[in-house]
Amino acid sequence: MTNPSSAQLDSSRPVPHSPEREVARVGMLRLTLRRLLRSPSGQIGLVCFAIVFCAGLFAPILAPYDPIEQFIGSELQPPSGQYWLGTDELGRDLLSRILYGARLALLVGVVAVGAGSLIGVSLGMLAGYLGGWFESVTMRLWDTLLAFPGVLIAIAISAMLGPGVFNVGLAVAIISLPGYARLARAGVLAEREKEYVLAARSLGVPVPTIIFRHILPNILPPILTQVALGMASAVFLEAGLSFLGLGAQPPEPSWGGMLADSRTYMRQAAWYGIAPGLAITLFLMGLNFLADGLRDALDPTRRI
């Protein structure tokens, strides 16, 4: 009788392809990334994200002008060799403002997703692991938060804390908490009674170590999908709030703010609102595709 473990160890022996073996060999995270790179949605999403990321990161190098520098006499210029995407009503170069706007969109996304996922996942995991009153109270809180439309919470928080990019990020982080917390709790509930957790517990490993070192890596992939969706919602809300004048404040270049400014000049300068709108769409669609690709890559039916 062949010992299965020795068969697994013998690399020269041909074995039938099995996804479980693949997971065991390369690890869940790396496997997810590999599948993501193979899926069309993942590829499109990654390319769009990379474009916006690079635009934001290298804005000082790529931008032809200072985003807040006003060229007197060059107001509302259509796209030309000198100003590739034209200029706004104050004579500022639109391309430069859009490149720097990417920085702001990324910043809000990172603040919102960073704070939201860190706090949400921690609370969700603790709720799932500890159970009891802590779980009941936090779950009730998430249900309550979910009972509000996100836009209204964001507006309420902006009204309380005042307009500004950081406050928008904070508002989006608060809105996104229930999503992360519920996902993390569900993941912990599924993992809690598995043998590796029981083994760690019986060895006397402290609870925080069990939760964050042992369980977290196993429930991380679905949370990544939520991160992509959370970033999309952050970008949308930042643009929306800046459009309403509650987000980034002038002269800070924000895509939503540029769209709001362009409204007045729809007749004279129809092109003004096109580029910022396209930039938001590129980023949002990219993040949605990325989330789709991640979901496909994590689809349990593909592992059977």
């Binding site: 643009a239 409204r263 729809m266 129809a270 709108g277 949002l284 949605n288």
Partner: peptide, 18 residues
């Protein structure tokens, strides 16, 4: 559907106005 879900409604509204 992918286009509409990835595009902010206020921009689509502006395009309609235009």
């Amino acid at each position: 559907a992918a286009f509409y879900l990835g595009t902010p409604n206020f921009w689509i509204g502006m395009l309609y106005i235009m």
